[in-house]
Amino acid sequence: MKRLMLPLALAGFATAAPMALAETVAVITPFLAQPGTQAYVQAFQEDAATRGWEVNVIDTAGDMAAVISRIEDAVTQKVDAIVVNVDPAQVQAGLQTAADAGIPVIGMDAGADPLIVTNITSNGYAMAAETSVYVANRIEGKGKVVMFVFDAFPPVQIRGVVADAIFANFPDIEVLDRITPDVQDGGIADSRAKMEAVLAANPEPGSIAAVWAAWDQPALGALQAIEAAGRTGEGIVIVGMDANPQARDAIAQGGNFEASMAQDFVGIGKAAAEATARAMAKEEIKSKVTYVPTVLVTKANAAP
């Protein structure tokens, strides 16, 4: 009897597998736990629903090799298009398999690559430039800045590069520390701990002018640390990036967390769906990268 349970459990899912003849699109990402990814995947699904596509969203929970495996599976399954949300350099083997089978692959906040039809994304360089100069202007070009970066992930790494360049261009701005938080817990808790250590090492009021974070979670962690240390009155300027709901909320309250950059995730999802439609229609898409505009979020426009 017990032996029967397994196939029965599996059979339950069989009925869930639709047998429609609609165009099928596989969306493969290792980052579905990220709010931004969720937003554009959802926008993509909604747009795809109006076009009558059947969309299969696959999350490999951070595993890059599994992304390749799942691309291979999608090719075996003969989908009409594949949308990926990873650095193409790391999944070349999978992209090649899709290319050999003539299945178009569209990048959704991925990266440019000859094997990708086009990559729909925000301009990370421009975004980082906006928050970095916001900080530089707010602290009037002088003071110590704490940076939170994550160079292991190329889209975040480029933000750090731009911030480095801009801060270096102000002779009186000193980068006090360039911290890579542990992101296994989502990034807030460890960033808070790291910021608490920085605050403890710099007890003089006013000794830290600003916190520049390459995404919102470390900015929120830094904000918590500053609040817990009772140092909110020192005017430490915090900026994040991505403007997730929690960050918007903090910015709207008018505390130390002053600014973030809103990527148009819904726009990215929709543009990816549009590009997918064009690719499936065998239309030529010339540019390997398609930028969707971003906007600086401050107290003035933080309300979601």
Binding site: L10, P18, V57, A61
Partner: peptide, 22 residues
């Protein structure tokens, strides 16, 4: 399981729960 369930378009989170259960 990973390969087959992906091909059957079973949600990846359901797949994880299923694998743990098995």
């Amino acid at each position: 399981l990973d390969n087959g369930l992906t091909q059957m378009k079973v949600d990846s989170y359901v797949r994880e729960m299923l694998v743990g259960t098995i």
